[in-house]
Amino acid sequence: MILTAAPSTSLAEIHAVLAEKNQRLGFDPADWSRLLGSNGVATLAGVAPALTALRRIAAGSTTQADFDAVGNDWDVESRLQQVLHAHRLGHLSADTPAHTLSGGESMRVALAAAWLSEADFLILDEPTNHLDGASRQAMTDQLRQWPRGLLVISHDRELLATMTRIVELSSLGLRSYGGNYAAYADAKAVEQASAQQTLAHQRHERRRDTQAMHEAEERQARRAARGGQQGKDANQAK
């Protein structure tokens, strides 16, 4: 699903609605800048607390807080590495510093984290902005693999071409179009042609009505003039 444009308030509202429905979200818009400024891949992927606690336990910690932090994620590090490898990021590890990553790698690691979280929805706002061609293609390939709900706000037509539904947000509200951007563009062209035809017809009808009104006024004026002249002639005859 795609929104071709949406202000940040709309994105926040969408996020709030999904949260109210107890949908697990793979991306919180408010956290994006924080994630990009994180210390390492583990933090960017959202597994740093569990991984840190797991390593403390491996070193001998028996603190209940560490066991609570791990929960059932005893294989979190291996699962992270598997996900990174599956998304062509296998050259990274949990300890890779975030500042060594390119912008595209940072965003792709955050996306890969959604697979770890098993989120119900993935929400992205202009995800391909400031990415080079290779990074954009890698992200597009990554999104194609996402198996659940996906909501993307984007003006990237190449990205929109890979989607299966376009939702247009305008001052008139939301309009949903099945198909990718090409199908959306075709549908909009048909709508615009129809609107122009309707407008032309309305203008033609308005001109015709205006002309008919003027002709009626002229006929009435001529009749009134003839009536006045006939009255004068009758008075003169007397």
Rank of each mutant, 00 (worst) to 15 (best):
M1G: 00
L3R: 02
L3A: 04
A6P: 00
S8D: 05
S8A: 01
S10T: 03
S10G: 04
E13D: 09
L18T: 02
K21N: 14
Q23A: 15
R24K: 14
G26Y: 08
G26M: 03
F27M: 12
A30W: 10
D31G: 03
W32E: 03
S33R: 15
S33A: 13
L36Y: 02
N39R: 06
A42Y: 10
V47Q: 14
V47S: 12
R55V: 05
R56H: 11
I57K: 07
A59C: 06
A59E: 13
G60I: 08
G60R: 12
T62G: 07
A65H: 09
D66H: 15
W74L: 11
W74K: 08
V76E: 02
R79E: 06
V83S: 03
L84K: 09
L84H: 06
L89I: 06
H91P: 02
L92Q: 13
A94P: 11
A94N: 07
A94M: 10
A94S: 10
D95T: 07
H99A: 09
T100Y: 03
T100M: 06
L101M: 02
L101H: 06
S102A: 04
G104H: 03
E105R: 05
V109L: 03
A110M: 10
A110H: 08
L111R: 01
L111I: 08
A114P: 05
W115E: 05
W115F: 15
L116P: 12
S117E: 08
I123T: 00
D125W: 00
E126Q: 03
P127I: 01
H130F: 13
H130T: 01
R136H: 07
Q137N: 13
A138S: 13
T140N: 09
Q142M: 11
Q145W: 04
W146K: 03
W146L: 02
W146H: 03
R148T: 11
G149T: 10
V152Y: 01
V152I: 09
V152A: 03
H155R: 01
H155G: 00
D156P: 10
R157V: 07
E158W: 05
L159E: 01
L160Q: 12
A161Q: 09
M163W: 06
M163I: 07
E168V: 02
E168K: 01
L169M: 11
S170M: 02
S171T: 13
L172W: 01
L172K: 11
G173I: 05
G178E: 15
N180F: 06
A183E: 13
A189F: 08
V190R: 14
S194F: 07
A195S: 07
A195K: 14
Q196L: 15
T198Q: 15
A200G: 03
H201F: 05
Q202G: 00
Q202R: 08
Q202H: 06
R203S: 06
R203Q: 14
R203K: 13
H204M: 04
H204T: 05
R206C: 06
T210L: 13
M213V: 00
E215I: 04
E215F: 04
A216D: 11
A216V: 04
E217D: 06
E218Q: 10
Q220L: 14
Q220W: 12
A221K: 15
A221R: 15
R223S: 10
A225P: 05
R226W: 15
G227Y: 11
G227E: 12
G227S: 09
Q229N: 11
Q230L: 13
A234E: 13
N235M: 15
Q236P: 01
Q236S: 14
K238D: 15
